[in-house]
Amino acid sequence: MFGIMRADQKMGSTDSVVDRKPNPSNLDRVTQTQNLISGQVEALYESVQLQNELVKSLAGEKDMLLYQLAEARSQHLKSRVEQGEDPVRTRSASVCFSQACTHQPEIEKLKSKISELQAHSKRLENIHDRQKKRLEMENAKCSNEVKKMKEDKKAFIHEIRRLGEVNEKLLKEKNEIEEKCRSLEGNMHDLSSGRVLLFTGNQQTYVDDVSSEIGNMLSFKMESRGVKIRVERCTDPQTHHNNTPLLVLCIHASRLGTDVHHALQSVKCDRSVALVVLHHKEYHALPSQPSEKLLVGGHYRQLGVIVDIAFLKSKGVYTCDMNDRSLDKLCSFIFNIARQI
């Protein structure tokens, strides 16, 4: 009976465990619940096995007692028969019969106990079958949840990788934009703190006044665009670096090609050099074609820009369409040099 009580207790413990629902959001708890359920099923199965063994043991004891009773009765009757006595009427036979009657209640009690244990064992087997089916259903449900969790985990990992790639791409673009911003800020800083050089060479004295006026006009125009520059005179163009704009002034006095050739003799022509052709003429006498179309030599194409500016000794650089276009071109030329730094 103690074995029966322990089986009932374990069965109750199993019911309480099985009634708990696994947490579908936690894979570890689902696995622990499955392991606990398996342990309870094994304990219940062992309890049923113990009950079956107890039933078998009691049945064996019953058979042994019946066998011993039958042997005793047979031996007694055999001895009496050999002595020529009627075993039924003898006192010994009466005693043996009374002993058999005395053991009969115990035998019936054992039979009743065996029947009770068999019925209980049957109930335990039924309970075991029901629990097993329910546990199999729970296990199948947990397996499906685990499978779904694994699929969700795989999807999450794929999404995390995709977001990581997107984030890496965005960081790369951000770094490139920041680098461009720093480069532009550096160029603007170099331009605002840099110099613009003016080279006049060995030309007439009044060219100095014109060059100063052109420098002031460029400074004013650049400042109106938010950039301050320092226009300085250049005495030796050989020391000029290609990261500094150099304006070479040339007076158109005789033939254009000859005048430009003399002005550029000591200058290394590259994209940082601008040629400014000065025309000492009234507006109506200005050339119809710009100098950049007349200067077709290969070394002229290496220059950054070629412009024409008109002036009069009495008026200086006067206002006209050609001068306005030329000053705008020179400002753009200075900006382009700054972007290349």
Results as ranks from 00 to 15, higher is better:
residue 212 S to Y: 03
residue 176 E to T: 13
residue 103 H to S: 08
residue 8 D to E: 13
residue 51 Q to G: 02
residue 11 M to E: 03
residue 46 E to I: 06
residue 160 I to K: 13
residue 113 K to P: 00
residue 154 K to M: 10
residue 132 K to W: 05
residue 81 V to E: 10
residue 311 F to C: 15
residue 299 H to L: 05
residue 296 V to N: 13
residue 268 K to S: 07
residue 20 R to P: 00
residue 282 E to M: 08
residue 53 E to W: 03
residue 219 S to M: 08
residue 79 S to V: 08
residue 46 E to T: 13
residue 65 L to A: 13
residue 191 L to D: 01
residue 11 M to L: 11
residue 179 E to C: 04
residue 261 H to K: 14
residue 234 C to A: 11
residue 313 K to E: 15
residue 336 N to F: 04
residue 47 S to Y: 00
residue 136 E to D: 12
residue 333 F to A: 02
residue 236 D to Q: 03
residue 71 E to H: 10
residue 92 S to A: 12
residue 148 K to I: 08
residue 85 E to Y: 05
residue 334 I to F: 01
residue 223 E to A: 15
residue 101 C to G: 12
residue 126 N to E: 12
residue 58 L to D: 05
residue 182 R to E: 14
residue 147 K to A: 13
residue 9 Q to M: 08
residue 155 A to C: 06
residue 156 F to R: 14
residue 25 S to T: 05
residue 32 Q to F: 06
residue 136 E to K: 11
residue 84 G to V: 05
residue 203 Q to E: 12
residue 147 K to N: 07
residue 264 L to Q: 00
residue 316 G to S: 09
residue 176 E to H: 03
residue 308 D to W: 00
residue 315 K to Q: 12
residue 36 L to E: 12
residue 315 K to W: 04
residue 194 G to W: 01
residue 206 Y to M: 03
residue 148 K to L: 11
residue 302 Q to N: 14
residue 45 Y to E: 12
residue 281 K to V: 14
residue 278 L to S: 01
residue 140 A to W: 02
residue 182 R to C: 08
residue 256 L to I: 10
residue 113 K to V: 15
residue 277 V to Y: 00
residue 150 K to W: 06
residue 2 F to P: 07
residue 26 N to E: 11
residue 141 K to R: 14
residue 264 L to C: 01
residue 126 N to A: 13
residue 58 L to A: 12
residue 279 H to Q: 08
residue 115 S to I: 08
